[in-house]
Design a binder for these strands. Structure first.
Lengths: 213, 213
DNA sequence: TGTATCCGATACATCGATGTATCCAAAGGG
DNA sequence: CCCTTTGGATACATCGATGTATCGGATACA
């Protein structure tokens, strides 16, 4: 049982096992989808028996949740880093480029993340967690856009930096959906940059337009 | 066996059964998610035995595919209708409103559609079908936008009516993702309209901006 | 209305996944 | 270096889902 009673000991072996299981699970989930993966498969991929699994997790859902939390945290840090990277120069287009690279880096992650979305869509508690994670991301973007106010003005329709940040997330989600189908990461990045440019500029200082397909 | 050999007879009963199975499956899929539904459950919900199922479908995947094709076709028709509705007056904002109502009508459909996306993301053949359906939708939007050229000018960044139509789809997908988590259809509609307005206008003739959360 | 055909129900055999109980090995503390 | 505690392996019992083979009632058509 993966109970959290009184923390008897930390045990180096345990954390290794847990990490291995999570890593293997990521690969298996990405390849086959959460709904089509058995506990057995995860264990086999990780090189453990089911005993190890039940010693670390109570269910496949629990593992999935832990996996999501871990990876989502990493991404959030990377995005925050990419946004904080330029101190006082406040170059929005450059920030857009960097964030785009981070967000559309790993197709496997997008697959797992979408599985998790589907999962969350039917479990309010999970949905809450996912919404909170998204809100952290959005906060970072909104703050960054607010810092840039004056240098680049945002379209009024969106309602300031807060609304614009929502739009950035929506664009990300929209491009992700498409990317899951055509698997063309480079194109998706270009397209996301283009979309964000269209959303975040007032239509005055446009860079060159591309084909957009 | 659900074989399509030589069409022996049509049999009224058969089509009813098939339709009932599809309808029940829709409800069950929406409620529990494709990955967590058994053939048995679908049959029970429809009031049939598993014999009826295997007589009409070869697998749950096959049924799921048929279900998606059917419903997606309906939606596509509705969207095309909403776009064609105004003949020569070419009022883009009004068209945006109508299409938004249609696209964000039924939360259950969005749930099933997202399940299907996840499914397609791991099966190139299915992905192809989904991409084709999306392309039909996009075509309708692009044509409509092209018709409106001159009345409302599009931002150059997006690359004409074609690019703008891509953006419309992306916005729809982005808003859908959020909607799956917060389940607030009314808010999603307002937000999608706002997004589309921001995308499709050049920032000149903005209507009033809203809070955007 | 008779009859050939079709459709769906039932029963059965099988398989895979789950969870648990028990046992052996490996850490870590003294 | 022993010995207690912890972690993971093995074996087992069970359950649910799948697919198929077969049977009886319904349906279409003459």
């Amino acid at each position: 049982m993966a109970v959290e009673g009184t923390t008897g000991r930390v045990t180096k072996r345990r954390v290794r096992t847990r990490a291995n299981l999570l890593e293997a699970a990521f690969a298996v989930f990405a390849a086959k989808g959460f709904g089509r993966v058995s506990i057995e498969e995860v264990c086999e991929a990780a090189g453990y028996s089911r005993g190890a699994f039940y010693s670390n997790f109570g269910s496949l859902d629990e593992l999935f949740f832990a996996l999501y939390a871990e990876r989502a945290g990493l991404i959030a840090d990377q995005v925050a880093g990419a946004l904080a990277l330029d101190g006082p120069d406040l170059d929005v287009p450059a920030a857009v480029d960097r964030v785009t690279e981070v967000l559309l880096l790993d197709l496997d992650w997008l697959l797992v993340k979408t599985d998790f979305l589907v999962h969350a869509a039917r479990d309010p508690a999970v949905a809450q967690t996912l919404l909170e994670h998204r809100e952290r991301l959005r906060r970072a973007v909104a703050d960054r856009l607010a810092r840039a106010a004056g240098h680049t003005e945002l379209p009024v329709v969106l309602g300031g930096a807060e609304g614009a940040a929502h739009a950035v997330i929506a664009a990300y989600d929209g491009v992700t959906t498409r990317l899951l189908l055509d698997k063309d990461v480079e194109h998706a990045r270009a397209w996301l940059k283009q979309l964000l440019t269209a959303l975040l500029t007032d239509g005055s200082d446009n860079p060159a337009a591309r084909s957009g397909g």
